[in-house]
Simulated assay, not measured.
Amino acid sequence: MADRPYTVLSCGMSLDGYLDSASGERLVLSNRADLDRVDAVRATCDAILVGAATVRNDDPRLTVRAARRRTARVARGRTPSPIKVTVTGSGDLDPRTRFFTHGGGTKLVYAASAAATACSNLHSVATVVDAGATVTMRWLSEDLHARGVRRLMVEGGGHVHTQFLTDDLADELHLVVAPFFVGDSQAVRFVADGAFPFHAGRRARLAQVRQLGDVVLLRYGLSDRFTQVEPDRDGDGGPPAESVGQ
């Protein structure tokens, strides 16, 4: 198998497993302490990936927010924020979204061949990669590795997380649980149906549990590349410190 980046899946969900509501309004699952933790993890990564639906619906910046973390990255010869990556099957992306307009640096759009021409309006703000008839996360991961990405953070949404998990491409999972229910089966779940490598007969390794205000972080090791370390909580993007949770 070709090389791929060390891949961290990061997700927040409700107590009943939903990423968002069905109302069209963005559902706030995290809190300030957890957002700072996510920022620290971002600072350790070479690239951040989200699906096109997340770009359209959430309009994320996907940048390292803390100035000290950006400064530390630059001091180590890196860009202030990681490369931004998205994937689309339709090409329906607006170049005015914050994914493209905030943070500078490289933006990569992996598009199915049929959608690549629809991305012509993105060529001034991103590199569009024709990923073939159907974009697969394995091919995308190998292409990112060839571009120098050694540590990848995947921040959703559910369809993208499902593909990484069912194709056994994730090395660790950061799952944050918010203290409320959505209670609407029309809402978006953490993952869709699929054949997952972890099931009742093969349990994922729970490496850490940490309370962050009113949410809880569950950190799972999903591959033999997983190590019992976490990003420096100071968040400067430096060497990770040993995890204190089991």
Rank of each mutant, 00 (worst) to 15 (best):
T7P: 06
T7L: 01
T7A: 02
V8M: 06
V8E: 05
L9P: 06
S10F: 06
S10T: 14
C11E: 13
C11D: 07
G12A: 15
G12T: 15
G12S: 15
G12L: 12
M13H: 08
M13G: 11
S14Q: 11
S14G: 12
S14L: 10
S14P: 10
S14A: 13
S14D: 13
L15D: 11
L15T: 10
L15M: 15
L15W: 14
D16N: 12
D16L: 08
D16Y: 13
G17F: 05
G17S: 11
G17C: 09
Y18C: 13
Y18F: 15
Y18I: 10
Y18S: 12
L19H: 06
L19M: 10
L19P: 14
D20T: 14
D20W: 07
S21V: 14
A22C: 10
A22R: 06
A22E: 09
A22V: 10
A22T: 08
S23E: 10
S23N: 12
S23Q: 11
G24Y: 12
G24R: 08
E25N: 12
E25V: 15
E25K: 13
E25I: 14
R26P: 13
R26F: 15
R26N: 14
R26H: 13
L27K: 00
L27P: 07
L27W: 00
V28A: 15
V28P: 01
V28I: 14
V28M: 10
V28Y: 07
L29D: 08
L29C: 07
L29E: 03
L29A: 07
L29I: 09
S30M: 06
S30E: 04
N31Y: 00
N31I: 06
N31Q: 08
N31E: 06
R32N: 15
R32H: 15
R32F: 09
R32T: 15
R32D: 15
R32L: 13
A33G: 14
D34T: 03
D34E: 09
L35I: 04
L35E: 04
L35W: 01
D36I: 04
D36Y: 07
D36G: 13
R37A: 02
R37Q: 09
V38T: 03
V38I: 04
D39I: 00
D39N: 05
D39Y: 00
D39K: 00
A40C: 04
V41N: 06
V41T: 10
V41G: 08
V41I: 11
R42A: 01
R42K: 07
R42S: 02
A43T: 02
A43N: 01
A43H: 02
A43D: 00
T44S: 14
T44G: 05
T44H: 01
C45Q: 09
D46P: 03
A47E: 01
A47P: 01
I48T: 02
I48M: 07
I48G: 02
I48D: 00
L49W: 13
L49F: 12
V50N: 01
V50S: 06
V50A: 09
V50W: 03
